[in-house]
Amino acid sequence: MFKVGILGAGSMGMTHATGWAQTPAHFVGVHALDAERAAAMVAQHGGHTYDSLDALLADVDLIDICTPTHLHHEMVLQAAAAGKHIICEKPLALNAAQGAEMIDACRRAGITLLVAHVVRFFPEYAGAQAIVSRGDIGDVAVIRLTRCSYQPRLAADNWFLDPAKSGGMMLDLMIHDFDYARWIAGEVESVYARSVRGRQPNAPEDYGIAILRHTSGAISNVEGGWAYPPPMFRTALEIAGSAGLIEHPAGSSMPLSLHLKATAGGDVDAVGIPGSPLDESPYTTEIKHFYEVIAHGVTPRVSAEDGLAALRIALAARQSAQTGRAVRIEEV
């Protein structure tokens, strides 16, 4: 029996618990600061709540770390020391040195570390990657990616808004598309970015655009923001190649449009998560794949090294937005 525990009971912890329920793994329980949410998770998915990470680690083969970013480094090292496989939410860490140290510790401990870059499991993003890798649009020339939502609104400890805890919008949100751009067009050489908070750290909300130069010659325009009016969340993707073009504008494939009077001005989720009606949530697809990787040695769609590479692009973008200079990846 393959035993799994979750660390953290925020929106990602809850979402992953739903995913684990769809795998053969046995969910043993959760350790989280918020006892009420932890209790809600085990009420829905079984297992029990644990008082400490050590206690949870003692009971599992794999730990799924869904805590705020600033905790990833210490928790991964602790889990690696305990010899447990690890799934870590993105971003892997707050800086490249920590990320490299985490990867190194897991390698030395002989355990697998995976980073939850879930965008690679969204069917439209995975589908576009498959089209590109089949050669249907030729060599990739220009990529355009958009991911904009409203500012996360957690009732207590809104760590997303604290750059010391989340790394800021570029590390938390835009990193999805930095990873995706790299998946499509390969390594990134340099980044130039502008953002609201880059020059005004105390601005009330953040929005940014980064331009990436890939080693292949491809160029990417990545837009991200926490500045839309809630509950708006838009993603868009476009890939132009030497032999074709993939277009997927924001909102273009929404199968439903509901304008219900009762919901006007209704509840807004604490953190915006994109979604389209599907047989299986992309988060569940991701967890099922990660289970196959760790339990049966399947090659991961996204590796810990990919997670570190995406982090470095995000760090370069943030540095560029702060300094006004284009930043080469090796500088971060």
């Binding site: 060599d139 220009v142 010659g217 491809a218 160029i219 030497s242």
Partner: peptide, 17 residues
């Protein structure tokens, strides 16, 4: 800028951000 689109057909940049 780059010259991946229409490569070989023209001598100028075809992609730009």
């Amino acid at each position: 800028t780059n010259q991946i689109l229409h490569k070989g057909k023209v001598q100028v940049e075809t992609g730009g951000l």
